[in-house]
Nucleic acid binder design. Structure first.
Length: 224
DNA sequence: TGCCAGGCCGGGT
DNA sequence: ACCCGGCATGGC
């Protein structure tokens, strides 16, 4: 099976196994952005606590975050880990939003996709994955989000090299799939679902993995 | 109990 | 242009 065929086949297999994931798990686009920043290299469970704290403190709004003291904000989001760094990153985003878009998320989202991505990416603390998560899940644009699970699963199935870059993986996925935000969103969420259950860093738990049928015969599933 | 989680930055080479 | 240490909490 060719690489792009395989990427398409993965989708059906994952969907059949787990059903639609309905990502991003947030009530508003702004909460999606906050979650995207907080979940950097962090267990989602911890992010949920931090988001609940923000909500309780009335900080799930751009103006409130912009006005909040960074040290206090850090304490509120503490369960998410890297709390000092992430407090700064959240504030970096809302500062940009205030300065360049009058604090209006819809004004930011009025940008064409490429400009939107670049603008968000320019914020210190927002890298490619976080930017794409925002562009896809908060703004609803068709960009494919690549994360650690994406790279690991694709690599272990021989679809990419260990050195393949973020943009290369993204291009690969986007060329294999229809340009559809809904599909991209489900695909990424499903990869995370598979990854959490069956593709941990140490030890590929291929037993019961819905993608197991796509492994080459006798393929030794390299760790990486 | 150590390893890992839905990354990214900044300084050094 | 890479390479790497640092950032931090909670789950298993």
């Amino acid at each position: 099976m060719r690489t792009e065929e395989k990427i398409r086949a993965f989708y059906g297999a994952m969907l059949a196994a787990y059903g639609p994931q309905g990502w991003w798990p947030a009530r508003t686009p702004f909460e999606t952005i906050v979650g995207a920043i907080l979940t950097q290299n962090t267990n989602w469970k911890n992010v949920e606590r931090a988001v609940a704290n923000l909500d309780r403190e009335g900080l799930l709004a751009p103006e409130a975050l912009d006005a909040a003291d960074a040290a206090r904000l850090g304490q509120v989001i503490r369960p998410a880990g890297y709390f000092r760094v992430k407090a700064k990153r959240l504030k970096n985003f809302v500062r940009m939003l205030a300065e360049d878009f009058g604090g209006d998320l819809d004004a930011l989202f009025a940008l064409p996709t490429a400009a939107l991505r670049e603008t968000v990416l320019f914020v210190t603390g927002i890298g490619p994955e976080t930017a794409d998560s925002i562009v896809l899940y908060a703004a609803g644009r068709p960009v494919f989000v690549v994360d650690a699970y994406t790279a690991r699963i694709f690599f272990r199935h021989g679809l990419i090299e260990a050195e393949t870059t973020y943009e290369e993986i993204q291009d690969l996925a986007q060329s294999a799939l229809a340009e559809d935000a809904k599909v991209f969103g489900e695909y990424h969420a499903l990869l995370v679902a598979v990854g959490k259950r069956h593709c941990k860093k140490q030890a590929p738990l291929c037993e019961g993995c819905p993608l197991r049928e796509f492994l080459e015969e006798g393929q030794p599933v390299a760790i990486g």
